[in-house]
Design a protein around this nucleic acid. Structure first.
Lengths: 270, 270
DNA sequence: CTCTAGCTTCTCATATCATGGGACACGGGT
DNA sequence: ACCCGTGTCCCATGATATGAGAAGCTAGAG
């Protein structure tokens, strides 16, 4: 059984239902039959069937050999178009790769959207257990290093807006769960020039991130390095941070952002 | 002005329209205003507006600062979920990277869908002009090396089905434009063990590909190496083909496909 | 082989739901 | 000031999606 179909001021029932179908298929790790879809969404067989056929025509879903439905590759196409505009991803990749080579830990590239961060790329060191993050997935800002890195360097009013919209879930015992605590944490972040997530998202996972600044010196994304706490120790943080700073400097340069007249102002004092 | 909104046996007007909106935004390289969307799709302002608002609620579109619309990052999420099942992509990446290092040319990983190939990954050598292909984009089978590589090793009846469904567009003077010519080309491909696209998709571009075979020895994808014809010369093809073969062998192994013989045919749906 | 059970596909009369006409509001340009 | 091109909103209308149900499947059991 699933959540009720989302409502809102503007409603197009058919659309909401269609997206609910896609959501369902996206969350299920195995393809689903018509009956399962209809039951889960409390749609009539007949209705679900019609939707699935239309979605199939648009290649938003496809059928497996045994007739079950799963997400279609059209979505993959759309997804890639969606981030194309941010061609950040392509440009950043070589730099991330170097970063991973240097640190031997997993690197992420993330964007801020609303009050969540969205991972748009991930590079893993060759000899590492695979992390669970999926590209395209999102996490709350307040418990991720990338989130805090971006937030800390956003103009105050935009940061305030985001801080207001956060739903302060406590994901581990260390998660920062109030706006006030978050604000002081951001202040700390600004001072040292990099953000840290010390097991605030997940037990045993420590991350460190710095923002990627555009020509206006506004954060457009953040790069992080994550690893098990026992390897990413407090002592190593400054060294990793240096690699991170070099990395984002490279990305900014590649994106054509001028290094700016007065030198990197925010990210200097360690 | 755009094409008419697609029709079909099963119709949900609202859905077709919504996807037309997404299509439009996906094809435009710049964000569009409400009025432009409405005009291009011949929708009433009011209707277009409602759709956009609903799409925005689902984060399928987002608004730029000046209120214009573009594709949203939710699509990116969905897209990545869609290919997750084919975790081929992740597993193949290191092998592709090695391939690129060896050949110093661009490598692609592609899937067959209907009568088109879809690029699901692309790795470019560091010192190369960027190719125009976009991950997620698709091309016709008959004029790509990846398409021919997959087709050549498909079971005859499935291949025939695909060959029948191709729309034989002639993209360059060398494009294979008839089913007969394609069939003899596939025969040639089978004999030599790799497929070649000799400026059949684009003038000056030569590609060579081999299929990735699964446990049942059926092609699930193909890997290609592409480059300007003057660098990817006829003489070099066999050498590149060898690298390709090694590459796909590695991928198959990583996917857990047993090297040969009839394999465990155990994979059944739940 | 037939019978059932469970699934998918199809049809059609109904009323629900999206539709679009049009009013309003905003803002930038002349 | 004005206008023109925007985006937003409301609401009566009927075109449109809806869902009950019947008909087709397919596979597995008897």
């Amino acid at each position: 059984m699933r959540d009720a179909i989302p409502q809102g001021t503007y409603k197009v029932q058919a659309l909401d239902r269609a997206f609910a179908v896609l959501d369902l298929l996206g969350e299920s790790d195995t393809p689903l039959g018509l009956a399962q879809v209809a039951a889960s969404l409390q749609l009539h067989k007949s209705t679900a069937h019609r939707f699935l056929m239309v979605l199939e025509r648009h290649r938003m879903v496809e059928r497996t050999v045994n007739g079950k439905f799963r997400l279609g590759l059209r979505l993959f196409d759309f997804g890639n178009r969606a981030i194309e505009q941010y061609d950040l991803r392509d440009r950043a990749q070589p730099h991330l790769r170097r970063l991973v080579a240097e640190t031997e830990e997993t690197a992420h590239l993330a964007l801020l959207e609303a009050a969540r961060v969205i991972y748009i790329d991930k590079i893993e060191p060759t000899r590492s257990v695979r992390m669970i993050t999926r590209i395209g997935a999102s996490n709350p800002v307040h418990c991720t290093s990338v989130g805090k890195a971006i937030l800390a360097f956003l103009p105050p009013e935009r940061a305030a807006e985001v801080i207001r919209r956060i739903r302060y879930e406590k994901l581990t015992s260390r998660t920062i769960a109030t706006p006030e605590a978050l604000r002081t944490e951001l202040e700390k972040t600004r001072r040292r020039g990099y953000a840290v997530d010390d097991e605030e998202l997940e037990e045993g996972l420590r991350c460190i991130a710095v923002p990627v600044l555009d020509a206006q010196r506004l954060p457009v994304a953040a790069v992080s390095v994550s690893g098990p706490s026992f390897r990413v120790t407090a002592q190593k943080l400054p060294a990793i941070a240096n690699h991170l700073l070099q990395c984002v400097r490279g990305i900014s340069a590649d994106m054509g952002y001028v290094p700016s007249g007065r030198a990197a102002k925010a990210v200097v004092n360690a």
